[in-house]
C-alpha cells in the first residue's frame, strides 16, 4: 500500500533535479503522476519506464507554467482523463544571481514571472478542481534564501520569499475548501541549478551546513511526499525547511 495510491498528482518542472525526484517518488508510492516539462523533449520514454517499474504511473505534460492558455489546457487534460486532481507540486523555477548594483528590471521580472506567477497560475487552475472535490494538497517549492536572504541573490531570494507569503495566504483562503497549501524550503541541494554557483562558493556554503554535506533531490522529494500524503492531513500554511541545519 503506497502513501499516494491512486492520487492524481501534477509536478511542475519535472525534467530534472527536485522535480524529477518528486515525480519518481510519487510514482513509487502509487500515484498517477503528470510530470510537467517546459520544452518538448523526448521524456515520454523516461516516464513510461517509471510506469513499468513503479506501482503508480507517470506521463509527461509539455507546457510553460507561465502561459495561461497552455497551463489551462494541461489541467483540462487531467480533468478529462482523471476527473480530479489531488496534489499539485509547484516546483518549476529559475535561479540567476546578480549583485545589487547589477540587478536589472528584466532579471527581477524573469525571477518573478516563473517563480511566483507560474506558481500562482498553477495554484489558480489546480484549486478550481480541488474546490469541487473538497480536498487537495498544494506544495510550493521555496528556498532557504527566500527565508533568510543570501548575498548576490536579491531577485531570486525576493521571488522565493514571495512564494512563502503566497503559500501562507493561499493556505488561509483555501482551508475552508479542504485544500492544504504548504511549502518546502530546500537548503543547498545537489542539483544542476545549485552547481551553477561554482565550486568555490559551493565549498564555502557546504562548510555552513550542520550535517556537513549537500542534500539530495531525493531527500527533498521525501519532504514533499510527506506534505502530499495524508500523513500531513492536519498541516497547512507551513514552510518546511529541508536544509541539513544550514545557515547562510
Amino acid at each position: 500500500m503506497g502513501l499516494l495510491d491512486g492520487k492524481v498528482c501534477l509536478v511542475t518542472g519535472a525534467s530534472r533535479g527536485i522535480g524529477a525526484a518528486t515525480a519518481r517518488r510519487f510514482a513509487e508510492e502509487g500515484a498517477v503522476v503528470y510530470a510537467n516539462v517546459r520544452r518538448p523533449k523526448n521524456l515520454d520514454a523516461y516516464f513510461e519506464e517509471l510506469s513499468v517499474h513503479c506501482p503508480g504511473t507517470a506521463k509527461a505534460l509539455y507546457f510553460d507554467v507561465r502561459e495561461g492558455d497552455a497551463a489551462k489546457q494541461a489541467v483540462m487534460e487531467i480533468r478529462r482523463e482523471q476527473g480530479r486532481l489531488d496534489v499539485l507540486v509547484n516546483n518549476a523555477g529559475v535561479m540567476k544571481d546578480a549583485v545589487i548594483g547589477m540587478v536589472s528590471a528584466g532579471l527581477v521580472r524573469e525571477m518573478y514571472d516563473t517563480n511566483l506567477w507560474g506558481g500562482v497560475n498553477m495554484l489558480q487552475l489546480a484549486s478550481k478542481l480541488m474546490m469541487r472535490q473538497g480536498s487537495g494538497s498544494i506544495i510550493n517549492l521555496c528556498s532557504i534564501v527566500g527565508m533568510e536572504g543570501n548575498a548576490g541573490q536579491t531577485a531570486y531570494s525576493a521571488s522565493k520569499g514571495a512564494v512563502a507569503a503566497m503559500t501562507k495566504t493561499a493556505a488561509k483562503e483555501l482551508a475552508p475548501y479542504g485544500i492544504r497549501v504548504n511549502a518546502v524550503a530546500p537548503g543547498m541541494i545537489d542539483t544542476d541549478m545549485y552547481r551553477s554557483i561554482g565550486e568555490e562558493r559551493m565549498r564555502a556554503q557546504i562548510a555552513k551546513i550542520g550535517l556537513g554535506r549537500l542534500g539530495t533531490p531525493e531527500e527533498v522529494a521525501d519532504a514533499v511526499l510527506f506534505l502530499a500524503a495524508d500523513l500531513s492531513r492536519y498541516v497547512t500554511g507551513e514552510i518546511l525547511g529541508v536544509n541539513g541545519g544550514a545557515s547562510i
Partner: peptide, 15 residues
C-alpha cells in the same frame, strides 16, 4: 458559479 458554468460546458474560464 464559475465552477458550475465550467462543469456545464466542459470549459475552464480565463481569470
Amino acid at each position: 458559479l464559475v465552477a458550475a458554468l465550467e462543469d456545464a460546458f466542459d470549459i475552464m474560464m480565463d481569470t
